[in-house]
Amino acid sequence: MTERRFEGRVALVTGAGTSGIGRAICQRLAGEGARVVVNDVREEDAREALGALPGGTERHLAIAADVADSTSVERMYARVVDTLGRIDVLVNNAAIPEGRPGEIASINDRAEQMMAEAMKTGRSSTRFDMFLRIDDTSWRRMLSVVLDGVFFNMRAAIPRMLERGGGAIVNISSGAALVPTPSLPHYAAAKAGVLALTRAAAADYGSSGIRVNAVLPGLIDTPAQRAGLREAMRAVLAGQAPLRRLGLSEEIAAAVAFLASDDASYMTGQSVEVNGGIH
C-alpha cells in the first residue's frame, strides 16, 4: 500500500489494544501516514498494540482510558492535543460483547440447542429470553461502554476538530443495529444508538467541516469472535453470507480508512455495511 491519505494527520482509535478490528484500523491508518493514538482500558494492551505499528513510540501514542468514564476520556484528549498538537480522525471502536461474564456462553448454549432442534424438526421453540435475563448491571454496563463511550469521545473530539477547521469521525456500529438480534438486545440497542449519534452529529457539524459516518461490520473473524462464538455456529453463519465466508479485520479497516479519508469527502451521516452481503 503506497497510498498515504493520512500524512500529517492524527487519528485516535478507541478500544484498539485488544480488539482485532481496532488493531487492524491502527495498522491501516499508520500505514497510510497517520500518527495514531491507540486507546484501551489497560495501558499494557494499548502499548502492546502500539509496538506493532510502523514508527512505534516515536510516532504514535498509547493512552489508557475507560471510554465509559467521561473524565478519563476528557483527560485523554487533552493529552493528545498537548503531545501531538491536533486530532483529525476519531474512530469509535471500543465495545464489549456481553454485559456481564457468562452471557455469551449461555447464548451459545441456546443457539446450539436451537440449531439441533431445527435440524431435527425444521423448527425450534427455544428462546434466548434475554429480556428476562439481562439484569440492570448488564444493561447499564453495555450501554455505558458502547453508547456513552461513543458520546463522550465525540463530545471531547468535536471542539478540538472545530479548532482546526474540521475532521472525520467513523463510528463502528454493527449489523445488529439493523437486523433483529434476539441474542443481544442490549448490544443491538446500544449500536443502534450509535447510528443516531452519527446522524445527529453529521447533520450539525457538516457545514463546519466535520464528517461523521458509521461502519456496520457483519461477522468478522477476530480473536474475540473466535472466543465468543463456537465453531459450528461460525461455520453456519459464514455460509449464510452471499460471499460465503467471514470478513477480515483488514476489510473493516479498509472501509474505515475510506470514510476517514478525503475519498469520502461528500459522504456524511451514512451507514456502510461491510458484511459479505448478509444484509
Partner: peptide, 25 residues
Amino acid sequence: ASVALFLASDEGSYVTGQVLSPNGG
C-alpha cells in the same frame, strides 16, 4: 469516482449488496 473506486477495488472486498450515498448528508 472515489466511492466507485472503493467498491470496485479490493478495498471493498467484503462489501456487497450495499448502497453508498455520497450526498452531502
